[in-house]
C-alpha cells in the first residue's frame, strides 16, 4: 500500500456506560468522524487488561484508544480510578520498550459528550496518521509464516459466519 492511500487501523476499547453511549449520541446527532476506529465495547475501563492492548498491536493495530467515564462518574464507583493508575504504568512501560506514547491514547468521554467523542476520534486518527504505520512488530510477525498456495487462497469464507447464520435461522 502506498503512503498516501494508507489509512491507520485503530482499536478503541470503550466503556459500556459512558463512551459507548457517547458514541451512540455522536451517531444519532449525525456527527462526522473518521472511520478508522474499531470500537470494542467493554463493561468498564477498569476491566481492560493490558494484554488486550498488546494483542491489538500484535495483530497489526497502528494505534489504540482507551476511553471510559470521567473520574467520579464510574458506573462501578471506582473502576476508572484503578484503571488510571494502571494506565500510567502501562504507557510508561510501552514507551520504555519502544512503542511511542502517541500510539496508545486515553480519554474520558461521558454519555452526553457526543461531540467530544467525534473530536477525540478525529484527533487520535490524525495523530496516528502523522506517526505513520506501526512497523515494529513486522519482524516478529514474519517469523514462522507461510504464503498459502494460490489454490488455497480461494477459500475465504469465514467459518464463524456460518454458525452465526444457522443460529439466526433457528
Amino acid at each position: 500500500m502506498d503512503k498516501q492511500n494508507w489509512e491507520p487501523k485503530i482499536v478503541a476499547f470503550v466503556c459500556n456506560w459512558c463512551t459507548y453511549t457517547g458514541a451512540d449520541l455522536a451517531g444519532t446527532s449525525r456527527l462526522k468522524y473518521p472511520a478508522n476506529c474499531k470500537l470494542i465495547r467493554v463493561m468498564c475501563s477498569g476491566s481492560i487488561d493490558p494484554v488486550f492492548i498488546l494483542k491489538a498491536f500484535e495483530r497489526g493495530a497502528d494505534g489504540v484508544l482507551v476511553s471510559g467515564c470521567h473520574p467520579n462518574d464510574c458506573h462501578y464507583n471506582a473502576g476508572n480510578f484503578h484503571a488510571r493508575r494502571r494506565w500510567d504504568f502501562f504507557h510508561k512501560l510501552l514507551d520504555f520498550i519502544g512503542i511511542e506514547k502517541g500510539r496508545l491514547q486515553f480519554s474520558w468521554i461521558s454519555a452526553s459528550e457526543g461531540k467530544k467523542f467525534a473530536d477525540v476520534i478525529t484527533k487520535v486518527t490524525e495523530d496516528i496518521k502523522a506517526m505513520g504505520q506501526f512497523t515494529s512488530y513486522k519482524k516478529m510477525n514474519s517469523e514462522f509464516t507461510v504464503d498459502f498456495p494460490a489454490d488455497l487462497a480461494e477459500l475465504e469464507e469465514p467459518v464463524l459466519q456460518e454458525s452465526f447464520d444457522k443460529e439466526t435461522v433457528k
Partner: peptide
C-alpha cells in the same frame, strides 16, 4: 504444519 479452514474443509500445508 499450517492449516487453512474453509466452509467444508481443512487444508494442510
Amino acid at each position: 504444519l499450517y492449516y487453512k479452514r474453509s466452509k467444508n474443509d481443512v487444508q494442510l500445508i
